[in-house]
């Protein structure tokens, strides 16, 4: 460690200044883009959320926190928040659980590449296309009901997408189908990067496969799992496409997530200022989640040191 630096000579100072200017030139396009397309709209959105917005005349007055208190007294907002929590939990448990299972199963078996490709393919489709495909799986005259009738389980057929207990699980199944492949590939990469010595040592010592997984593989895989967790939480939190395609028309909009609620209020109901306040709340929640995850990551890194 250096406690005191020698004073830079005038030549060095000039060089530093030139360096700084060069850096600034390189930075300028990025700074400009981020400012114009991210910061300004963000600040503008926050400003809108404190105003009243009349449909054809635009911002017409400052209303303080009225839009926010409307959100907190709106049962639809809480319903959407509750649905979003189910989505986050489901996208944590299902894609990661299944992805990890597939990754462990496929590790080192013959034809693993083919299986990996098959599991990964849904990831390549646009979520809207996935929603449409699964809409027709669950539709009244869709694949699922046809299959059930075909095997003599006609009594089990139902309007899956209009059943209050089935609609969100149906959408989550579609989501899991799409996201498991990516999680699996990331975990396979994580598994491939593990050092082999501890595993071999454990085998020599006579540990059972479960013990090896629980005490050696899982702890070493934690950093990868954390990355996968972050991706999954964000995917669950920002779910829009699937809900829009499969659950938008569900009576009373009781299947919407926060993101869809915000879109609906803004563009369908033309309540732009209220929509802006919901957007700010979504942003704050996302910030909070990211903060918790950063803390966890920090902890994990500290432990690894």
């Amino acid at each position: 460690m250096q406690s005191s630096r020698p004073k830079p000579s005038p030549r060095e100072k000039a060089a530093q200044r030139a360096n700084f200017l060069t850096a600034l030139c390189f930075l300028a396009p990025a700074v400009l883009l981020v400012t114009v397309f991210l910061l300004v709209p963000l600040i503008y959105n926050v400003w809108i959320s404190f105003t009243g917005w009349a449909k054809f005349s635009g911002i017409d007055r400052f209303v303080g926190v009225a839009n926010y208190s409307q959100a907190f007294s709106n049962p639809k907002f809480f319903e959407a928040a509750g649905n979003t929590v189910s989505w986050i939990v489901a996208s944590l448990v299902l894609p990661i659980g299944l992805g990890l299972g597939f990754a462990l199963l496929l590790r080192g078996i013959r034809g693993a590449e083919a299986f990996k490709t098959v599991f990964f393919v849904p990831r390549l489709l646009a979520p809207t296309a996935i929603g449409t495909i699964w809409y027709y799986v669950f539709a009244d005259n869709g694949t699922l009901n046809a299959m059930l009738s075909g095997v003599g389980l006609g009594d089990w057929t139902r309007s899956w997408l209009y059943d209050p207990l089935m609609i969100t699980p149906a959408m989550i199944i579609a989501h899991t189908w799409q996201t498991t492949g990516l999680v699996m590939v990331l975990l396979l990469l994580g598994l491939a990067a593990l050092p082999t010595e501890p595993l071999e040592a454990a085998q020599v010592e006579g540990a059972t496969p479960f013990q090896i997984f629980r005490h050696i593989v899982l702890p070493m895989l934690l950093p990868t799992l954390l990355v996968v967790t972050i991706i999954s939480v964000i995917a669950g939190f920002t779910t829009f496409d699937l809900v829009w395609v499969m659950g938008r028309d569900y009576p009373n909009r009781s299947t919407l997530t926060l993101a869809v609620h915000q879109y609906w209020e803004t563009f369908r109901s033309n309540r732009w200022a209220y929509g802006a306040s919901v957007a700010v709340l979504i942003g704050l929640i996302a910030l909070l989640i990211t903060w918790v995850q950063t803390l966890l990551q920090q902890k994990l890194e500290d432990r690894a040191k």
Binding site: D249, P251, N252, R253, R268, S269
Partner: peptide, 12 residues
């Protein structure tokens, strides 16, 4: 808009 959602609920 919200009324139609309610009517839909009745139809289902």
């Amino acid at each position: 808009l919200p009324a139609v959602e309610e009517f839909n609920r009745f139809m289902v």
